[in-house]
């Protein structure tokens, strides 16, 4: 009898200890997580809702908004309103900016992939002890100021820059080639800015590549190109997808590069948005433009997640 009571008591104590343990773990976790979650939640996430609200209000005269409901921001995105008779005519100028931004971001992504893949592969095929140093060399520019790097780019591609001076010096061209303030300049700047974003995830997946598989493919009569196409690239696919996302998204929202290298003539979405909060003083339209950018990014991310899901399903 006493024995049974004793066991029951011990089971109670055990349950108590477990409950206490759980409760303490939950409390500790909440305490540890709340500063980061609350700060980001309130200052990083909640303002997105404000942006949504602002996008359906009317612009204030000196910036800001007046609390009057209006769909004007979204209408303005597609139509031009006649000042005199209020009639709407379709206008593609904003769509064009979005189109060009998406195009530029896309071309940048492809360019970065074409340069980044061989680079990542090169690093991954180095002896282990050298890899970190190479990786460091690739990432170092990423950690330096984007503005300054863009400025440095500007220095070398302008008419009096080192590229034109050397081209003229060796007599290839008579007149400087105008690169600055063209889409080409923006494209070059974007590649330059976001190349490390492509190399890092590519390296991460190529590093895991077992080179014995490459040897096996050679052993089975594949040539170099076939090994690349049939073995290496398929294995690097997660890295390729991640790298493309990491280049495409910031490329799409780029502000500094088109600002400095596009010379204000070749606006991208980022400049359009910033302009509305600056000299254009049309916050609702700026908010709407930002939300539309978010939507494009979300679509890109969804494509990524769906692909990743398919990959997972195939492997699982």
């Amino acid at each position: 009898m006493a024995e049974i009571a004793d066991t029951a008591l011990s089971d109670n104590r055990l349950a108590d200890a477990k409950r206490l343990h759980e409760a303490r773990a939950t409390r500790t976790r909440r305490f540890l997580l709340s500063p980061a979650i609350l700060t980001i939640g309130i200052v990083g996430l909640f303002p997105l809702t404000i942006t949504m609200i602002y996008s359906v209000l009317s612009p204030g005269t000196y910036g800001g908004v007046t609390w009057e409901l209006s769909g004007e921001a979204y209408i303005q995105f597609l139509f031009e309103r006649d000042i005199f008779d209020d009639t709407l005519t379709f206008s593609g100028s904003y769509l064009q900016i979005y189109g060009r931004s998406i195009g530029l971001a896309f071309v940048t992504t492809i360019g970065a992939l074409l340069i980044g893949f061989p680079t990542a592969y090169f690093i991954a095929s180095k002896p282990r002890e050298q890899r970190n140093l190479w990786l460091f060399l690739i990432t170092l520019p990423f950690w330096t100021n984007l503005l300054i790097r863009t400025y440095a780019m500007l220095l070398i591609i302008r008419d009096e820059g080192i590229i034109n001076l050397s081209l003229m010096g060796i007599g290839i061209v008579e007149q400087p080639v105008s690169i600055l303030y063209t889409d080409t300049a923006v494209f070059m700047g974007l590649i330059y800015s976001y190349l490390p974003f492509m190399v890092l995830p590519l390296y991460a997946s190529l590093e895991k590549l077992d080179f014995r598989l490459v040897e096996a493919a050679y052993d089975l009569y594949a040539n170099r190109l076939q090994v690349l196409r049939r073995v290496i690239i398929p294995m690097a696919k997660p890295g390729i997808v991640a790298g493309c996302i990491l280049v495409f998204i910031p490329g799409l929202g780029a502000y500094i590069t088109p600002e400095l290298l596009g010379g204000g003539k070749h606006l991208m979405i980022g400049n359009l948005i910033a302009l509305q909060f600056g000299s254009s003083r049309n916050w609702p339209f700026g908010s709407a433009a930002a939300l539309i950018l978010m939507a494009v990014v979300m679509v890109a991310l969804l494509v990524y997640i769906r692909n990743a899901g398919k990959e997972g399903a195939r492997h699982g």
Binding site: L33, I37, I40, G44, P47, P250, G253, G270, M294
Partner: peptide, 27 residues
């Protein structure tokens, strides 16, 4: 969810974060 929130600043284009933060702070 916690991971997503912590990494949120990396996932949203900086310009969007910038304008929404501006809107929030001005309010």
């Amino acid at each position: 969810l916690a991971y997503a929130i912590i990494n949120q600043p990396l996932m949203i284009p900086e310009i969007v974060t910038a304008v929404s933060t501006l809107a929030f702070f001005s309010l």
